[in-house]
Design a protein around this nucleic acid. Structure first.
Lengths: 207, 207
DNA sequence: AGCTATTATGTTCAATTGAACATTAACGCT
DNA sequence: AGCGTTAATGTTCAATTGAACATAATAGCT
C-alpha cells in the first residue's frame, strides 16, 4: 500500500506527534530526511493523503492528522460509588478516569459509558473481584443474564439480571449473598461490557 | 487551582484537539471567546503554562500541548500464542493491539509489556477465564505467588509461580490440571500486571 | 519507445501565527 | 489607600509555515 519511503515519512510524523506532542512542519520533515526542498515533502503528504493515511487541514500550520490520533481512545469516568437516587450521574463522585481504545473496551459509539469500582465479593462466582473495575454502558435493552449495575432500594449494586417467569430479579453470584427481588421498580444504571483488573502484588509473608 | 475562565480556555483547547485533531491558534481561541485582542489569549496561555496545565513550544505554530495528550497511552501488542522456544517475542505472532493508559494497566515505564489471550480454564480459580486478555510485564524479579507466563517444555502457559522449599513450580489454579514442576530450567516470559475482559453477551437460548 | 508513478531539486510568495508593548478596569486582600 | 491577580483592548512586527511552479532522474510496465 505504501512505499518504504512513504511509510518512513508517516512514521516520522507519528513519532514526532508522540514524543513531542506536536505535529512536524513540512520543513521539519524536510530536515529530518535531508531533502533539499520542501516540495518533496509536499508530494509525500499529498500521496499519503490521497491514500487515506493522513488528513490535512489546508493552509494551516502543523495540521497533519494521522490515524494514530484516530484510534478512538475513550475516557471513561470511574465512579467510586454511584450516589443513591441519582439517575443522572454527576461529576461529583468521579474517582478518576481510565483511557482505553473503544474496541478493547467493547464500547459502542453513542452510548454513555462509565466505570464502577467493585466493592465486596458478591459476584465472585462470576469471577468479578473486589477492587475490579467494571465498565458499564448505559443502554436500554437488558438481556437475561447480563451483569448490571442497578439501583435497588436506594443503593447501587452489581448483580446478574435474571428474568424468570416474566419477572426480573437480581442474582448475586455468591451463595453467601441473597438474591434481590425488586419491591417496586428496578432501575438499571448500566450493563457490564468489560472489566479491568489491576493485579495487586501477592501478599508478602516473609520476603 | 484554575479560575472559571482559565478552565474554559483549557477546555476549549482540549475539545478542539479532540474534535479536529489539531491545536487551536491564539486567534482561533480569541474568536471563540469573542476577545478583541489576542493578548487576552496570550495571558491565559501564560497562566496555564505557569500553573502547569499546558506546555508550549515557543514561537511554534499550534504548539500547545495539554495534559490530555500526556496521559501515557501504551500500545500493547497482543500475542495469540507465544511461539514455542521463542525467547524474544517477534512481531510475527501479533494478533492486535490494546491501547490504554499506563496507570490503569499497572505498567511501569521501562519494562516491555505484552498481552496474552488466555486459552483454557486452567486458571479459573484465580478468576482468569478463557478469552481474557492478560497483560504481562517482562521483568526480572518474580515473586512467590505471581501469575506468570512461562515457557515450559517448549510451550507457553499461564500459571501461578510458587516457591516451595527453595524450589519453584508452576501451579494451575484448577484442580483438574496438574502442577508443573520444571525438569530443567524455568523460563519466565512475563509477570501478570493486569487483566482485561471483554464481556461476551450471554448465550441466547431462544429468540 | 512511450507512459506513469515515485523521488527529488531550487526558488518565490503569501498566508498564518506567536509575541510584544502600552493601557485600562474590576476584584479581593491587607 | 495601596497592591497583586485576573481580565481585557488595540496595534504592530517578525518569524513560521504551507503552497505553487518549473524541472529532472529513475524504475517498472506495456
Amino acid at each position: 500500500m505504501l512505499t518504504d519511503r512513504q511509510q518512513a515519512v508517516l512514521d516520522f510524523i507519528q513519532t514526532e506527534q508522540r514524543e513531542r506532542g506536536i505535529t512536524p512542519t513540512t520543513r521539519e520533515i524536510q530536515q529530518h530526511f535531508g531533502f533539499a526542498s520542501q516540495t518533496s515533502v509536499m508530494q509525500y503528504l499529498a500521496t499519503l493523503e490521497r491514500k487515506g493515511f493522513l488528513d490535512r487541514h489546508a493552509r494551516k500550520a502543523r495540521a497533519l492528522v494521522t490515524p494514530l490520533q484516530k484510534v478512538r481512545i475513550t475516557d471513561i469516568p470511574i465512579y467510586g460509588q454511584i450516589p443513591a437516587g441519582m439517575a443522572t450521574l454527576t461529576d461529583q463522585a468521579i474517582e478518576g478516569h481510565v483511557s482505553l481504545d473503544a474496541r478493547s473496551a467493547n464500547v459502542s459509539k453513542n452510548g454513555r459509558t462509565f466505570a464502577l469500582r467493585v466493592r465486596g465479593d458478591s459476584m465472585i462466582d462470576a469471577h468479578i473481584l473486589d477492587g475490579d473495575l467494571v465498565i458499564l454502558e448505559d443502554r436500554k435493552e437488558v438481556r437475561n443474564g447480563d451483569v448490571v449495575a442497578a439501583l435497588i432500594d436506594g443503593e447501587t449494586t452489581l448483580k446478574r439480571y435474571v428474568m424468570e417467569r416474566g419477572r426480573p430479579y437480581l442474582k448475586a453470584e455468591n451463595p453467601m449473598y441473597p438474591d434481590l427481588i425488586p419491591a417496586r421498580e428496578l432501575r438499571i444504571q448500566g450493563v457490564m461490557v468489560s472489566l479491568i483488573r489491576k493485579q495487586t502484588p501477592p501478599t508478602r509473608r516473609k520476603r
